[in-house]
């Protein structure tokens, strides 16, 4: 299946959780938020949130600004 993570297509050979998708980008233990198809998923639920073909995943963190 293919998911889009922060705008980039990613091919997954088998099942993939949101936690696995986030781990492709960062290992930070805090300060990161993730959304699937525009819906925020709270961190404790990342492991138990499976991704489906075509899902759009956004992973954000804080940067200098404002």
């Amino acid at each position: 299946m293919q998911v889009v993570i922060n705008g980039r297509p990613h091919q997954a050979s088998g099942a993939m959780s949101l936690a696995q998708a986030v781990a492709l980008l960062t290992t930070a233990a805090s300060g990161v938020a993730a959304a699937v198809n525009g819906e925020v998923v709270r961190r404790p639920a990342w492991e138990s949130t499976p991704l489906a073909d075509g899902d759009q995943v956004e992973v954000l963190t804080a940067v200098q600004g404002g």
Binding site: N6, L24, L25, A33, E58, V59, L60, A62, V63, G65
Partner: peptide, 17 residues
């Protein structure tokens, strides 16, 4: 102090947080 929210950049080092 304010911060902005942006896509995680795997290449970035150091955290403003």
């Amino acid at each position: 102090t304010t911060v902005a929210m942006r896509r995680v950049d795997p290449a970035s080092t150091g955290s403003v947080l």
